[in-house]
Amino acid sequence: MSSQFTPNNPLPQEAKVPQEIAVFSPEVEAEMDRHLAKYPVKRSAILPLMFIVQRERGGYLDPPGVAYLADRLGVRITDIWEVATFYSMINTEPVGKYHLQVCKTLSCKIMGAGRVTAKCTERLGIKPGQTTEDGMFSLSEVECLGSCGTAPMMQIGFDYYENLTDEKVDEIINKCQGGELSNGVR
């Protein structure tokens, strides 16, 4: 019998499944309770709670955050995973403090989305899908954000920036770098 597993192989003691569970302040707990109160079934609050955990855990669902959610909602870790990976706004990997999400769908595309992305790349030195080394910026191309009449546009965190021009993008990035702009995470 061939086998890669033998009792003699030293066993690394750590599994990737989180042992540690995140803890949150009473205010954050209360915020979650308000969401949970809306539904007859706890699991329904999974997305609102994911947004909160993601916000509190530095922008993404880290393993303790995932463990927290599973515990809080009374579901399995894998249930959290299957949902988290389905929705594009839930991050399972770290993202930059400012997450620039440029809409690339048709209306924005024909109104100059390409220029917006190019400008961001030029300023930040990152391509869509990348994060700056200092962890300040992530750049993504996303699908239609319902701003087609004010195209081209991008979203930073939850905030909309519309009718973008090169100058506006410059200004926005300057402000981010100066810390004068909210990162739109709520």
């Binding site: 079934v41 706890k42 997305l47 949902v83 594009s88």
Partner: peptide, 27 residues
């Protein structure tokens, strides 16, 4: 009446996917 948030999935506009999503499942 309560508000509920999606999290980035066009398919959740389809009414039955929306209901799954509202129940906390994949959309």
């Amino acid at each position: 009446i309560y508000t509920h948030t999606g999290a980035g999935a066009y398919i959740c506009g389809e009414e039955t996917a929306l209901l799954n999503s509202l129940e906390g499942l994949r959309g």
